[in-house]
Design a protein around this nucleic acid. Sequence first.
DNA 1: GTAATAGTGTCTATAAGACACTATTGA
DNA 2: TCAATAGTGTCTTATAGACACTATTAC
Lengths: 245, 245
Amino acid sequence: MSKVDSEKAFLKNYNIHDFDVPLTSVDMAIFTVRDAQLQVLLVKRAQHPAMGQWALPGGFIDLKHDKTLSDTARRKLLEKTGIDTPYLEQVETFGSKARDPRGWSVTVAYLALIASEDISLSRDESSEEVTWVPVNKVKKPYKLAFDHGKILGICHERLKNKVQYTSLPVNLLPTEFTLTELQQTFETVLGNSVEKKSFRRRILVADILEETGEMKSGSNRPAKLYRVKPDSRTHFFARTIEGPR
Amino acid sequence: MSKVDSEKAFLKNYNIHDFDVPLTSVDMAIFTVRDAQLQVLLVKRAQHPAMGQWALPGGFIDLKHDKTLSDTARRKLLEKTGIDTPYLEQVETFGSKARDPRGWSVTVAYLALIASEDISLSRDESSEEVTWVPVNKVKKPYKLAFDHGKILGICHERLKNKVQYTSLPVNLLPTEFTLTELQQTFETVLGNSVEKKSFRRRILVADILEETGEMKSGSNRPAKLYRVKPDSRTHFFARTIEGPR
DNA sequence: GTAATAGTGTCTATAAGACACTATTGA
DNA sequence: TCAATAGTGTCTTATAGACACTATTAC
């Protein structure tokens, strides 16, 4: 029997249910900035286990319809928020015997960033409650199910770290924004103030934005509106932003 | 029925085999520096599928004995190399319908760094061939099974990137080493030269090493031997190392 | 005019790159 | 003594932080 034929025979007799495999799911930390606060999307679980508890949105891979893991993540995000082209980044995978009462389970955690303007919450058919919660308030009233508190903590850490040396926060704003709005978004995520001149120099030298030609006229001097240059990927700076000395 | 009782009833009737779940495994890119080259450990697959092809070491989670995902990774590393306290970092999880002929599968990729001095290859009972291959030569003679070529590429990228702003390469050396040896290890991983004075300043200011008091006398002026300070974690620099301008 | 926010000029501080220099060993 | 590698002094360069300054609007 040739090698190819023997592999065919092997696969014909292969049955995944002959083996004990862990449950595998995807969970998401979907962040946005609203009311000058970093907020995360939580759902109230409508089903067992942990029914009635708050948790990160997520669920199992749909083996029929999802082609890749990120398809699962994008599908979940679309179900909860109606958004289909977010900034999406895989953060870490958590697997253990103990994290889910149903047995050995693995969950792949994703982080998504969206502009709060874009959101229409819960086009979801399952009647779960869905809500935004400021990340810093997730402890007391919103103790999370399973190990989701830990997962959220790690996603939040990753976000804060990356904001120190990347342009990630542009993904938390609508397509057009002023430099001041962008700076405030950085400050909200970092949790500290940023010096105006340094910030503007850093962003403009990175050459990732272009002027729209329009101005945003508020109550005082109008500000230039910018957008991210077409096709530009996340910018990585060679030095971190550091905040006040 | 109380909420707790109904959850108990739910779990009692829960059977993981009622659902289609993906195959879930762990794969590892185990790196070392030998002969001034970054090398990676490959195994020749002794079983279907992809029998006879070279691949990253890895395998399924042992639901009975592994408590967490990293237990699986550590177990695989120990089987192949006899090493049980490596630098271990989870890199990324790959999941898709297409990556394994057995069906929808998910693999969690880990990166390990070990000192080549520590290795006694293949205490493994399974009669797989195990070998070190320079990372840059993995293409032609060692076309890897499944999507392992892609996984290795991403692990290698992660390593190169992190070496630009961390002290990771200390994990590729034995416990005692000279600054020149450390510099050469950085250069090997980065693939470019590093300026001696800048390098020494950067490492010494980071305050992660201590002198052993011993000297390494080779053929010329002896060099101070250093070791990593006890309990010191990976150091993160605020700026990247950049190589020649 | 004033208040308020947008945006700039320019000095200092920090850490990396360049590169010539000195130091210590074996043979 | 010389060859070879270890290790230093110090100048230049790049980019962040500080902070005072000017610019443009609504009222």
